[in-house]
Amino acid sequence: MGSISEKMEEHYKQTFEKHGATSLGVDWGAVSADHQLRLQKMLSVLLEGHEDATVLDVGCGFGSLYDLIVKNDISLRYSGVDLCENMINYAKKQHPNCEWINGDFLSLNSEHGTYDYVVCNGILTQKLVVGQKEMDSFAKELIKKMFSMCNVGVAFNIMTTHANYFTENLYYRNPAELLGWIMSELTGKVKLDHSYPLFEYTLYLYKEDFPLMSYGAHRTLKGEV
């Protein structure tokens, strides 16, 4: 799996060097509103009574999710992990009071403990030049690890096969097939959001002990001014 992580690291290191702390800098295209929408979908994993919960942002980039958390005065204890040292260094300067981890999420050991919520915005939408089967295995490993490290819930996005065009470097999964695997292997407490106007969907996985009373659905989050 290391080869996929290495390819991802090199790709995003270059996009950030070229475009900086922007949606282009994390290869989300030039429309910053789309980037903000994806961030909002990550925060929709929160359940009522989340105050002071811990959240781990896998592939945190330059910390744009935390910027949204601060903008909306949401009470969370945030940690971010990313392969790209240049992004992590930028995030540390912007928000020195947060925990920023430069490394491969799949290599994190037990000393990092668990988090109430684990979110992943973008890693599973991109496969670069990796083959489909190899990326399928990587995706399953990543999803399993995120779920094992959460106490409450997980959110991640992925490209949908219900699209009118396909791009070679992106990673597409049939939502029904992926949902079936998750419910067979991980949890029956799942929500799938395929309703927003992008060719992707967000999946929300919860531990069996928690009722699905969503926090994010009850408020409109402020994006970029």
Rank of each mutant, 00 (worst) to 15 (best):
A176I: 08
A176T: 14
E177H: 00
E177W: 00
E177F: 00
E177I: 08
E177Y: 00
L178K: 01
L178P: 00
G180H: 07
G180T: 06
G180R: 00
G180S: 10
W181A: 02
W181K: 05
W181E: 00
I182W: 04
I182E: 02
M183D: 08
M183S: 14
M183L: 09
S184Q: 06
S184K: 03
S184N: 10
S184F: 03
S184T: 07
E185W: 00
E185M: 02
E185F: 00
L186Y: 05
L186D: 09
T187R: 01
T187I: 04
G188C: 04
G188V: 05
G188K: 15
K189W: 03
K189T: 07
K191T: 09
K191A: 09
K191W: 05
K191M: 11
L192W: 02
L192D: 03
D193K: 14
D193T: 13
D193E: 11
D193Y: 12
D193S: 15
H194G: 09
H194I: 10
S195P: 01
S195L: 08
S195I: 08
S195D: 11
Y196K: 09
Y196I: 08
Y196L: 08
P197R: 12
L198E: 13
L198W: 04
L198C: 13
L198T: 15
L198V: 15
F199M: 15
F199W: 05
F199R: 15
E200R: 04
E200V: 06
Y201E: 05
Y201N: 07
Y201Q: 11
Y201R: 13
T202Y: 10
L203P: 02
L203D: 05
Y204R: 10
L205C: 10
L205Y: 03
L205V: 08
Y206R: 01
Y206M: 06
Y206V: 04
Y206Q: 11
Y206N: 06
Y206L: 01
K207P: 12
E208C: 08
E208I: 13
D209T: 14
D209E: 15
D209M: 14
D209K: 15
P211N: 11
P211G: 02
L212P: 04
L212K: 04
M213W: 03
M213A: 14
S214P: 10
S214G: 13
S214N: 07
S214W: 03
Y215V: 03
Y215F: 15
Y215G: 02
Y215Q: 04
Y215M: 13
G216L: 11
G216P: 12
G216C: 10
G216I: 05
A217Y: 09
A217D: 12
H218A: 12
H218E: 13
H218W: 03
H218R: 15
H218T: 14
